[in-house]
Computed example of a mutant assay.
Amino acid sequence: MLGLPDHIRACLFDLDGVLTQTAKVHAAAWKETFDAFLRRRADRDGTAFVPFDAGEDYDDYVDGRPREDGVRTFLASRGVELPEGTPEDGPDSETVHGVGNRKNELVLRLIREQGVEPYEGSVAYLRAARDAGLRRAVVSSSANCHDVLVAAGIEDLLEERVDGITRREQGLRGKPAPDTYLAGARLLGVEPAEAAVFEDALAGVEAGHAGHFGVVVGVDRVGQSAELRRHGADLVVTDLAQLLEEQR
């Protein structure tokens, strides 16, 4: 059914890069945030400034992870460790939460300025899944998930939502741990083996693989098909419309 194994009863979709064209917005916000931080640090320490790579660094250390985990993971790759701080830290604070809050300010500004566009193939797939009687949830690391769904006009196509707010409230580990996807399956009343995970992030396909889901679909928007498979994708498509075309 819809390019999935016959026993699949539910679909769990990542948001940015799978349903909506916001991954590039997040990458731009991370680059602006990290470049400003790294430049200040280089000037202060008298060391060379090495900018954040919105391709490799984003994919390897940030994409799909909760915001604070992205800060920790990328800065650790540069040998930098910051104090945790608190969620109330200002965007200029040199803490994990402060850097994350600066990124969130920037991404919200970019979304307001640029709007949010869903992928047409993903919208078609969501409608086909609904019409076929498959349960549907979005599973995102973003605390802004609800606003993005509304802005993209696809909120009504999803039955449940697990996002960054859910993760904090329930104490769930973020991707690449499987916790948020497992929570999505519980909300839809299915076992992991009965659910398909749709992910474009390496951390996300790792999460789907670790949760022993029925199938993990890697969505390759940036030419990383081999990496998606290596991290746990069972099959890879460049757009969800490909899965519909297979049914014709």
Rank of each mutant, 00 (worst) to 15 (best):
R168A: 09
E105D: 14
D63N: 15
L15P: 00
D234W: 01
A76F: 04
H7F: 13
E32M: 13
T47I: 13
D156T: 15
Y125H: 08
V205K: 01
G98F: 03
R173H: 07
H97V: 14
R230I: 09
E169F: 04
D220K: 10
P87G: 12
V236F: 06
G218T: 09
G90Q: 08
E94W: 15
P91K: 04
K31H: 12
D14T: 05
A207H: 02
T86K: 12
F13M: 04
D57G: 07
K24A: 12
Q21N: 13
V216Q: 02
V50A: 06
G70S: 07
A207S: 14
L228V: 09
D89Y: 04
R221F: 11
V99C: 08
S142W: 01
Q247E: 14
G208C: 10
G214L: 02
D131F: 02
P176E: 07
D220G: 15
L4F: 07
P192Q: 05
D163K: 02
A207I: 12
A185T: 03
H7G: 11
E113Y: 09
A193W: 05
D59T: 15
G214R: 00
H26C: 10
L4H: 00
H231F: 12
V139I: 11
A36E: 15
P118M: 05
L15D: 03
L15K: 03
V236K: 03
H97P: 10
A29P: 03
A143V: 11
A54E: 14
R221S: 11
D43S: 15
R41E: 10
V148C: 04
T166K: 01
R186L: 14
S93W: 02
D69Y: 04
G98N: 06
V116I: 13
F198A: 04
Q247R: 15
G189D: 00
T22P: 03
V138E: 01
V216H: 01
S142E: 01
D35G: 14
L19H: 04
T238R: 15
S225H: 14
T20Y: 04
D60S: 13
D163L: 06
A137H: 00
P118H: 03
E191W: 02
D59C: 14
A193T: 10
E191L: 14
V99R: 01
P66C: 10
V25G: 02
L182H: 02
R173G: 08
V18C: 10
V139C: 03
V219K: 00
G171C: 09
